[in-house]
């Protein structure tokens, strides 16, 4: 992965950083997964667990920050090493945000449980979460294997996530218009969907950071902003049942 340094402790430190990143990544993946499961199965116990687990990620980020600063001060890293260390700082920040977003989804479980929502809505949310989690998993796999040539897929999937989010947005609006009693749970679900979509964005950020670490170049900047919810307006009348 990295070339060998004369001071082997330096190698150890760099390895430790990437190991901590991987551990944080695993935690973030698990939190998001469990938050969605809690939401779909209406399981407040699991949601509470997710909320408690967020501490681990905060702790991880602080630790990586500290370690990275110490390495920079002590070893005066250059080139790849410097990118590796700065990249670790950025990735850990992204992962910490992913954890926060997962926690936010978990916090909304209690509010959504009350009114039973149509199952199709949850199925859509689950599919959106699957996309975002696949994105995150693949990105972290690339971090492990360093095979950046596979990273093109990340953008494809980002488009899919945006499209799916737009579709869910429209659907939720429709439910709210059908029955004002749906507004509370649907608003929460809307935020959940938004959070999941943001998780996909963070995964894309991480992909860009990895690309930079490995190649030293910025990823080519053709990133069309795909989610079109800013333009969605539903007709003002109640739809015919």
């Amino acid at each position: 992965m990295q070339s060998v340094h004369i001071v082997s402790a330096y190698d150890e430190e760099l390895k430790y950083l990437s190991k901590r990143i991987a551990a944080m990544g695993g935690h973030a993946e698990r939190m998001v997964e469990q938050a969605i499961t809690a939401l779909v199965n209406a399981d407040p116990g699991l949601a509470q667990k997710v909320i408690r687990d967020d501490v681990v990620l905060d702790e991880g980020q602080r630790e990586i920050d500290d370690k990275a600063i110490v390495i920079i001060a002590k070893r005066q890293p250059m080139a790849t090493d410097l990118r590796e260390i700065v990249g670790a700082i950025r990735i850990s920040a992204d992962l910490e945000r992913v954890g926060d977003l997962g926690k936010n989804v978990a916090k909304r479980v209690a509010a959504v449980i009350d009114g039973r929502q149509p199952t199709s809505l949850f199925r859509g949310l689950e599919a959106l979460a699957d996309l975002a989690l696949t994105q995150l998993k693949e990105v972290l796999d690339v971090y492990a294997s360093r095979s950046v040539e596979k990273i093109g897929f990340v953008r494809d999937r980002d488009d899919q996530i945006d499209a799916m989010y737009t579709s869910l947005f429209r659907e939720l609006l429709t439910y709210m218009m059908e029955d004002p009693r749906n507004i509370t749970p649907c608003t929460h679900l809307l935020f959940c969907a938004k959070n999941i979509e943001r998780i996909g964005d963070h995964a894309t950020n991480i992909a860009e950071t990895i690309y930079y670490i490995v190649t030293g170049d910025q990823m080519p900047a053709e990133r069309p902003k795909g989610d079109k919810t800013d333009k969605i307006v539903l007709p003002g009348t109640l739809p015919v049942k």
Binding site: M1, K15, S18, K19, A22, A23, G25, G26, H27, E29, R30, L140, D141, Y143, A144, S145, S147
Partner: peptide, 19 residues
């Protein structure tokens, strides 16, 4: 998939229980 000698195991299996 994506396993290769020399790769770090803890980077590939990130789940908390595996760590």
């Amino acid at each position: 998939g994506g396993l290769a000698p020399g790769m770090s195991l803890s980077l590939k299996f990130r789940a908390p229980e595996m760590q």
